[in-house]
Amino acid sequence: MSKKRTQFSKKKLGQIPGSIIYTGEKAKQKLSIELFDFNKEQYVEKELQNVEESFSFKLSDSTTWINLNGLNHVNDIETLGTHYNLHPLVLEDIVNISHRPKIDEYDDYLFVIVKMLHYDANESMVSEQVSFVLGKNYVLSFQEAEGDVFDNVRDRIRFAKGRVRHMQADYLLYILIDAIVDHYFSVTELLGDKIEDLESDIFSGNITDHTTKNIQNLKREILRVRRSIFPLREVINRFEKNDNSLIHKKTISYYKDIYDHLTQVSENIDIYREMIWSLMDMYMTTISNKMNEVMKVLTIMASIFIPLTFIAGIYGMNFNYMPELHYKYGYFVVWGVMIVLFLGMLYFFKRKKWL
């Protein structure tokens, strides 16, 4: 069992349901809270020092987006959740980063979990859980650390681009999830490039000691993307068929667009998955061919030296009565026979196209 799974088991085992316990590894992450409050005429953008500063925006007629970074600050999350009457199980799920994408319906809000994927500077895939709470006129988002894919959403709010300032909170949730899904395309595109580069290396015979490790890493990345995308399709499908008053009919068509994007990404992932299996087969075939070439060379060398060794063995025996031993040119005759055998066998192997 990995260290991460062991830590998770120790934290969760025997805990009372609804216990708000952070299960991630970023225990020293700084708390960061940003707030956007907007309507079609104006907007307010603030960097909050504490969650209490957001309380006054709950009853406003405008749409409010509160984005909290730092799931390790469970007390602040609990304070914010208490103010918005969030269920203890929701708060528990927010700080438990091992959840699959899902949607839960409550009386006056929806709770959604999505996986945000991106590559870091070392081209290693990073998966981060993002939790959303959709209320009548607000969206709460919870992230483990700073850095996300929502910069375009912030600009659309600031500069009144598109429909976001004219729509309600359900549309805001849509563009936030859509930003995550759109970033899946960037992830899968880079993933496809890595697979194609590895395929070219294997096909050209440029195999190193890290080739097997690279193939296994790509398999893990594909499985990670697949685990993030396939459950999310079920979540978006629930949005389409939802009759909750928080999701307006004119917004449902936008969620259908997300579902179409997820279907396209899923198809790409299935293709890449097949390519990875093909890469493994190609790698094993290449290794087998190289081994066969080595064995063929060794077999030819052994076949050539078997008769030469036989002759040398015969005349290396210590019998007193061997007529050839006393022949004046016996040494040169043996060498001649051995050379003729050597050249004759080379010609034979060449004619058979074994060389």
Rank of each mutant, 00 (worst) to 15 (best):
V51G: 03
I202S: 01
N75R: 02
L191A: 03
E189P: 02
I247V: 13
S253H: 12
S54N: 05
Q7E: 11
E45Y: 15
W335Q: 06
Y272T: 03
F185Y: 13
L198Q: 01
Y347G: 01
R156E: 13
V139K: 06
A121G: 04
D270C: 10
N69S: 12
R165W: 01
L13H: 15
G162N: 01
I247N: 12
E240D: 04
S303C: 00
L172W: 04
L68G: 12
Q129S: 12
M280Q: 12
T251M: 09
F185P: 01
M338D: 00
L298P: 03
K241W: 04
N137K: 15
M338H: 00
L218Q: 06
F203C: 00
T188V: 14
H261N: 13
E47G: 09
M116N: 05
T6V: 07
S228P: 13
D151T: 08
S56N: 11
D148T: 11
N72V: 11
R100D: 07
V130Q: 04
E293Y: 00
N237I: 02
K40C: 13
N137R: 13
K296I: 01
R233N: 08
V153R: 01
M322Y: 00
M275F: 06
S200Y: 09
S127K: 14
E293K: 02
Y43P: 05
Y22D: 06
I77C: 01
P231Q: 10
H183Y: 15
S253E: 09
T82A: 15
Y184K: 10
F185W: 07
T82V: 10
N152W: 04
A312N: 08
Q264F: 08
M116E: 05
F348Y: 15
